[in-house]
């Protein structure tokens, strides 16, 4: 921040949200989906792409609505309702449009769209943007960074879990418990990024 330009600040937000404050490993958000779709690499990649796209677009929409409608009319206290409404409406619209225009893509990614509404990250990012009073580019940086960070988490986890099928895990720990312990280990590794930049 010290005397630096907007772009440097934007880059800092991007890297911080992707690595240092990674939503899964440092803020523990989006866990339901994280554990749900990381059983196979293919679903993890599909989810990553869909999620990042929805994330960026819906946070831009949220930013516009927040800045030009909610702040002027003092409706900040309705932010939860409005943001979730924007996300839900956008996901619904994307669903309909994709089904008509690009059935092939819809067949591949459509199922992930429905899951996204119950992902905490998708609603957390607009809320953080609003709370920090970020500008448009900063909001996009946070959204894109979170998307990339989440994708990174999904792909790392999926590649480990595919191998895990072959491992001999104690019966009580099979499935979710061992996945949690694994996530803890990855999160420990992600702590190493913390020295890079201080947010």
């Amino acid at each position: 921040m010290e005397g630096s330009g907007l772009w440097e600040h934007v880059l800092t937000i991007f890297i911080a949200s992707a690595l240092i404050n990674n939503f899964v490993f440092a803020r523990y958000l989006g866990l339901c989906i994280f554990f749900g779709v990381t059983k196979r690499m293919e679903t993890a990649v599909g989810m990553s792409i869909t999620f990042t796209a929805v994330m960026v677009i819906s946070s831009v929409l949220s930013w516009v609505v927040y800045k030009y409608i909610m702040v002027p009319y003092h409706l900040e206290y309705l932010k939860i309702v409005i943001f979730i409404g924007i996300v839900a409406a956008f996901v619904q619209a994307a669903d309909t449009i994709m089904k008509k225009k690009t059935p092939a893509l819809y067949y591949k990614l459509g199922i992930y769209l429905a899951l996204i509404v119950t992902n905490c990250i998708i609603i957390a990012v607009p809320l953080i943007n609003a709370g920090e009073e970020y500008g448009l580019f900063e909001s996009i940086a946070l959204a894109f960074g979170s998307g990339v960070g989440f994708s990174l988490a999904l792909i790392i986890m999926a590649s480990i879990r595919e191998k895990l099928d072959l491992a001999d895990v104690p019966k009580s720990f099979q499935g979710l418990p061992i996945a949690f312990v694994l996530t803890g280990l990855i999160a420990l590794a992600f702590l190493g990024f913390s020295g890079m930049i201080t947010l």
């Binding site: 490993f25 440092a26 523990y28 104690p170 019966k171 009580s172 720990f173 979710l176 418990p177 061992i178 996945a179 949690f180 312990v181 694994l182 996530t183 803890g184 280990l185 999160a187 420990l188 702590l191």
Partner: peptide, 17 residues
């Protein structure tokens, strides 16, 4: 931060057991 995951995993495993 990381401890939360360990705690969850271990507790779940323990309850299953």
């Amino acid at each position: 931060p990381t401890g939360g995951f360990f705690a969850m995993g271990l507790l779940m495993g323990f309850l299953n057991w």
